[in-house]
Design a protein around this nucleic acid. Structure first.
Length: 297
RNA sequence: AGGGGUGUAGUACAAGGGCUAGUAUAGUGGUCUCCAAAACCAUUGAUGGGGGUUCGAAUCCCUCCACCCCUG
């Protein structure tokens, strides 16, 4: 059976480097699962692997599209499955590396085939602003009482998405969720990279300082015209946009990027923590990881 | 060394001798079926040490300690 090694961990823990080491050892390709490294306009702020790094192993889903063509979790699932099918024709192994939990779950377990309509979502989003979220929540209550009670009613994203699906499908959103995982025809091995919290935060702070030196400001200026796109609702860019608007100073922006990256890392850890399938290793434990991999099948 | 000043949460500040020491921010925990590096929810934590006055002290007094400023 083909194998997919899933390399997980918080941002800046060292996933990319470890993935390349493992890929070279296994002589297999890497599929990135980082919902911001998909886009070629974003390099510095997403800490995308360098060209030199990418030359050491074949990478998929790294800067292969524009921010103007966003890739959703469901679309990623389909495209990544297609890539994996091709990879497994010639190779028994592949590595999935990244920090976008929802996208990883989409590929590993599948997503229910829910309807989607960007225009409708936009309308609902506007109505939430003008009429208030409570109004939309009340409408959701009539269409889908189960979801209304289950979700956080003050969370616009949840309310809008549930309403969008219920309206499009003509049946309650909750009735479409199967809650079952799709079985894949490859073996999934999850490997987590960890580091002490303080060390992780130090690495984040250092990395942000480096980004500023490398020209994050110039990069952010180039994508400023696309600031409304969801792909630009990203740590490192939003803060620079605020700086360009004159709302904060460059120094404040740098500090906010650090803080928001730390928070992002914390949310990633919260997301991964309950997953008992993850075998955890220290961030640079290459040999123990290879030993673990060799012991599988 | 002498004189002056300041010590409240990780940080910045508030509390005229009287409610459970407050606010901001950081930090922490959590939610999650395609906007997810998003969105949202919840929450820990402090009066520098010791003594005194008082029914009652962050607040007044003494002392020690730490830091800052000035003089040398």
């Amino acid at each position: 059976m083909s194998r997919l090694f899933v390399l997980l961990g918080a941002t800046a823990v060292g996933k990319s480097t470890m993935a390349i080491s493992v890929a070279r050892s296994l002589e297999c390709p890497i599929l990135s699962c980082d919902s911001r490294q998909f886009y070629r306009e974003m390099s510095i702020g997403t800490a995308v692997p360098s060209l030199k790094q990418r030359a050491q192993a074949h990478h998929y889903f790294i800067q292969d599209r524009s921010v103007q063509e966003p890739l959703s979790a469901g679309e990623y699932e389909k495209e990544a499955l297609s890539v994996l099918r091709d990879v497994y024709k010639v190779n028994n192994s592949a590595i999935l590396v990244g920090g976008s939990g929802l996208y990883i779950n989409a590929l590993l377990y599948g997503m229910d085939d829910l309807p989607s309509n960007k225009a409708l979502r936009e309308v609902l989003s506007q109505r939430a602003k003008t009429e208030g979220l409570r109004k939309l929540a009340t409408e959701l209550k009539e269409l889908d009482i189960d979801t209304f009670q289950a979700i956080d009613q003050s969370n616009p994203a949840r309310v809008i998405r549930a309403l969008e699906v219920s309206l499009l499908a003509g049946v309650p959103y909750s009735s479409l969720l199967t809650k079952s995982k799709t079985e894949r025809d490859f073996k999934i091995i999850k490997i987590g990279l960890r580091a002490p919290r303080q060390e992780l935060y130090d690495r984040i702070n250092l990395r942000v300082d480096q980004m500023m030196v490398e020209g994050l400001e110039q990069e952010a200026r180039r994508v400023l015209p696309y600031r409304e796109l969801s792909s630009l609702q990203t740590v490192g860019y939003r803060e620079m946009f605020d700086y360009f608007d004159g709302r904060i100073t460059r120094e404040q922006a740098t500090e906010l990027i650090k803080r928001n990256t730390r928070r992002y890392a914390k949310r990633q850890l919260t997301w991964m923590r309950p997953d008992t399938e993850i075998q955890w290793f220290d961030r640079d434990d290459f040999q123990p990881i290879m030993h673990y991999i060799d012991g599988i099948d």
